[in-house]
C-alpha cells in the first residue's frame, strides 16, 4: 500500500468520461471484430472483470446481442508471488465457453508493466488454444516492462512509475491518480 500521508490524489477521468469511453470502446470492438457472437470478453479479476461486464452491457444495448463474458484470476500465474509477503487472495476464473478455437478479447482496467497480461495469456493457454487474443484496456498508463501492447485503448495517461492509478466503475467513480510526492 502507498503511504497516503504525503500523497496527492488527482482525478484524471470523471465518472461521465469513463462512461463515454466505455461506450466508444464497445463500438470499436464491434466495428473491428464483427458480430458480438464472433468473440468473447474475458476480464482480468477484479477491475477488468467489471469493465468486461460494462462492455457487454453496452454491446447488448446497441447490437441487441450480448457477447459471452468470462473472467481470469491470474494469482496462481503471477511472477511476484514469492516476496515473503502475505499471499494475494485468490479470485475466480470462469470461462463459460470452449477456449480452444475461440476469439478472445482480454479486458483489463489499467495496462501498466504488462506482467498481468503475460500471466493471463499463460493461464488462458491452460484452458485451450484460442484462435486469437486481443487486448482492450480502459487506461494505458505506460511503463511497460514486456513487449505487450493493447489493441483497444480507452485513454492514454502519462504517469510517474510510482503513481497508483485507481479505477472505480461505480456511480461516483472515475479514474484517479495517487502520487507520492515526499517519498520515503
Amino acid at each position: 500500500m502507498v503511504d497516503e500521508t504525503n500523497a496527492a490524489r488527482t482525478t484524471r477521468m470523471t465518472a461521465g468520461e469513463v462512461e463515454r469511453t466505455v461506450r466508444r470502446l464497445a463500438i470499436e470492438l464491434v466495428e473491428q471484430l464483427g458480430e458480438p457472437t464472433s468473440f468473447v470478453l474475458v476480464g482480468v479479476v477484479t477491475g477488468g472483470a467489471s469493465l468486461a461486464r460494462l462492455l457487454a452491457d453496452e454491446i447488448e444495448r446497441t447490437e441487441g446481442v450480448r457477447p459471452t463474458v468470462g473472467s481470469v484470476d491470474i494469482t496462481l500465474y503471477r511472477d511476484d508471488l514469492y516476496t515473503g509477503l502475505e499471499k494475494p487472495v485468490l479470485g475466480d476464473t470462469e470461462l463459460p465457453f470452449g477456449v480452444g478455437g475461440a476469439g478472445i478479447v482480454l479486458v483489463d482496467d489499467v495496462l501498466f508493466t504488462g506482467r498481468t497480461v503475460r500471466a493471463a495469456l499463460e493461464e488462458l493457454w491452460d484452458y485451450g488454444r484460442p484462435a486469437w487474443i486481443k487486448l482492450a484496456v480502459l487506461v494505458d498508463r505506460g511503463h511497460r516492462e514486456l513487449p505487450i501492447s493493447a489493441d483497444f485503448v480507452g485513454r492514454r495517461l502519462s504517469t510517474e512509475r510510482s503513481d497508483r492509478v485507481l479505477v472505480d466503475f461505480g456511480g461516483g467513480g472515475g479514474v484517479h491518480i495517487v502520487s507520492t510526492t515526499g517519498g520515503r
Binding site: 500465474y77 487472495v89 485468490l90 475466480d92 499463460e122 493461464e123 491452460d126 484452458y127 485451450g128
Partner: peptide
Amino acid sequence: LDTAARIRAVNRRRVKKVPT
C-alpha cells in the same frame, strides 16, 4: 478455507496444473 475453495477449481480443469 477460502483459498482452498478457490484453488480447487484447478482440479476440474483440462490441464490440472498451475505454475505457482
